[in-house]
Simulated assay, not measured.
Amino acid sequence: MWTRSLLKNNAKEALRGRYWRSFLLCLLLSFLGIGDVSTNIVVQIRENIDSLDRAINGEVWQGNVTAQDVLSELPTYLSPMILNLVGIAVVVGIIVGLCWNAFLINPLTIGRNRYFMESRQSPAPMGTITTVFGPGYLNLVKVQLLTDLKILLGYFLIIPGIYWTYCYAMVPYLLAENPYLTTRRAMELSKQMMDGEKWNTFVLQLSFFGWAILCVLTFGIGYLFLEPYIQATFSELYAALRAKALAACMSDERELGGFVRH
């Protein structure tokens, strides 16, 4: 049975002598938009959909001015053409954003999880995060994308989205350990591991709120220093749930073979 204090103490121990390496890794990833565990592709997709909805309704968020107000001042024959161009640009932007997340952000997030899991045992090279681009890359892209899409669909009904977010929270860690898991198996195993752990996981996330307030006082710079601690703590959570899964025969060492020792 894990406790928040136990996970955090283990995280601090795992970061001992490796903190600045982990800090640099998180700093580099932050330039790509990869950060706190509370941010994920689901939020970004929903923002893209909201943008498309606003474009369809002709809204431009500049005060109370709308696209119709602007276009009414242009020659009539230009309005349909401009609207078509705006629509095409929005659709292209959404497609590019989805591809960016699916083929780069998600794999690098999984690679980051692998790095922190391996760092629990011994200092892992920063290049660990790029090992996801080897064998199994397309499978983990597919599995994570389908998982995110299911969660996204759940958010249209609100409650299922929140529920599935926690059910499938371990999918990126499972893929970090075994990139060949099928979508169905990754979701199933994550759901089993999170059974009875959803509320505790939420409270674990909430326990960083005080630190987050302090980070706000530093104009957000403090988040960069907090990020390694957060990632190391949630790696400890996965390690605890993984041990539970093996003990309860939800999986075995053929499926979850462990992480590399350096």
Score class of each variant (00 low, 15 high):
residue 142 K to I: 06
residue 191 K to L: 07
residue 196 G to F: 14
residue 159 I to L: 14
residue 150 K to M: 13
residue 182 T to M: 09
residue 170 M to A: 14
residue 175 L to G: 07
residue 188 E to C: 04
residue 190 S to I: 10
residue 152 L to T: 15
residue 204 L to F: 04
residue 192 Q to E: 12
residue 143 V to K: 02
residue 194 M to H: 12
residue 92 V to F: 15
residue 196 G to Y: 10
residue 136 G to P: 05
residue 202 F to I: 10
residue 123 P to C: 03
residue 106 N to F: 04
residue 198 K to E: 10
residue 152 L to F: 06
residue 180 Y to C: 06
residue 106 N to M: 09
residue 186 A to H: 06
residue 153 L to G: 15
residue 136 G to S: 05
residue 190 S to Y: 07
residue 106 N to L: 08
residue 181 L to H: 08
residue 179 P to R: 11
residue 98 L to D: 02
residue 152 L to Q: 05
residue 193 M to D: 05
residue 152 L to W: 06
residue 109 T to A: 00
residue 93 G to I: 09
residue 139 N to C: 01
residue 180 Y to G: 12
residue 98 L to S: 06
residue 104 L to Q: 03
residue 109 T to K: 00
residue 167 C to A: 12
residue 131 T to E: 10
residue 118 E to R: 02
residue 157 L to Y: 09
residue 111 G to E: 00
residue 99 C to Q: 06
residue 95 I to Q: 14
residue 115 Y to R: 00
residue 163 Y to K: 13
residue 142 K to L: 15
residue 193 M to F: 11
residue 156 F to I: 13
residue 174 L to P: 08
residue 111 G to A: 02
residue 196 G to I: 13
residue 189 L to F: 08
residue 133 F to A: 11
residue 186 A to S: 11
residue 105 I to Y: 01
residue 178 N to L: 05
residue 192 Q to F: 03
residue 140 L to S: 09
residue 203 V to M: 14
residue 148 D to M: 10
residue 129 I to M: 05
residue 102 A to M: 09
residue 150 K to S: 10
residue 96 V to A: 15
residue 161 G to M: 03
residue 182 T to W: 10
residue 185 R to T: 15
residue 152 L to V: 15
residue 173 Y to C: 10
residue 187 M to N: 12
residue 201 T to Y: 11
residue 108 L to D: 00
residue 121 Q to R: 13
residue 142 K to P: 09
residue 120 R to S: 10
residue 116 F to V: 03
residue 163 Y to I: 13
residue 140 L to T: 07
residue 95 I to M: 07
residue 120 R to V: 03
residue 167 C to V: 06
residue 187 M to V: 03
residue 170 M to E: 13
residue 120 R to C: 01
residue 122 S to R: 12
residue 139 N to H: 11
residue 128 T to A: 07
residue 181 L to F: 08
residue 194 M to V: 08
residue 152 L to I: 15
residue 134 G to I: 12
residue 104 L to H: 01
residue 100 W to S: 08
residue 178 N to W: 03
residue 190 S to L: 11
residue 126 M to N: 04
residue 198 K to S: 02
residue 153 L to Q: 05
residue 130 T to S: 14
residue 196 G to W: 09
residue 158 I to S: 11
residue 194 M to C: 12
residue 131 T to P: 00
residue 202 F to V: 07
residue 140 L to N: 07
residue 131 T to F: 07
residue 198 K to M: 09
residue 184 R to L: 12
residue 160 P to D: 12
residue 107 P to Q: 01
residue 182 T to V: 06
residue 188 E to M: 05
residue 109 T to F: 00
residue 93 G to A: 13
residue 138 L to G: 04
residue 201 T to F: 11
residue 138 L to I: 10
residue 120 R to K: 05
residue 115 Y to A: 02
residue 99 C to W: 10
residue 204 L to Q: 11
residue 150 K to Q: 11
residue 159 I to E: 08
residue 192 Q to R: 14
residue 122 S to H: 06
residue 99 C to M: 10
residue 148 D to C: 13
residue 128 T to Y: 04
residue 113 N to G: 00
residue 96 V to D: 01
residue 114 R to S: 01
residue 191 K to H: 14
residue 103 F to T: 02
residue 180 Y to M: 15
residue 205 Q to K: 08
residue 202 F to A: 13
residue 99 C to Y: 11
residue 157 L to F: 15
residue 119 S to L: 01
residue 152 L to R: 08
residue 201 T to K: 07
residue 192 Q to W: 06
residue 145 L to T: 15
residue 118 E to T: 00
residue 188 E to Q: 14
residue 118 E to F: 00
residue 168 Y to V: 02
residue 127 G to D: 14
residue 91 V to L: 14
residue 132 V to Q: 02
residue 151 I to E: 08
residue 204 L to M: 12
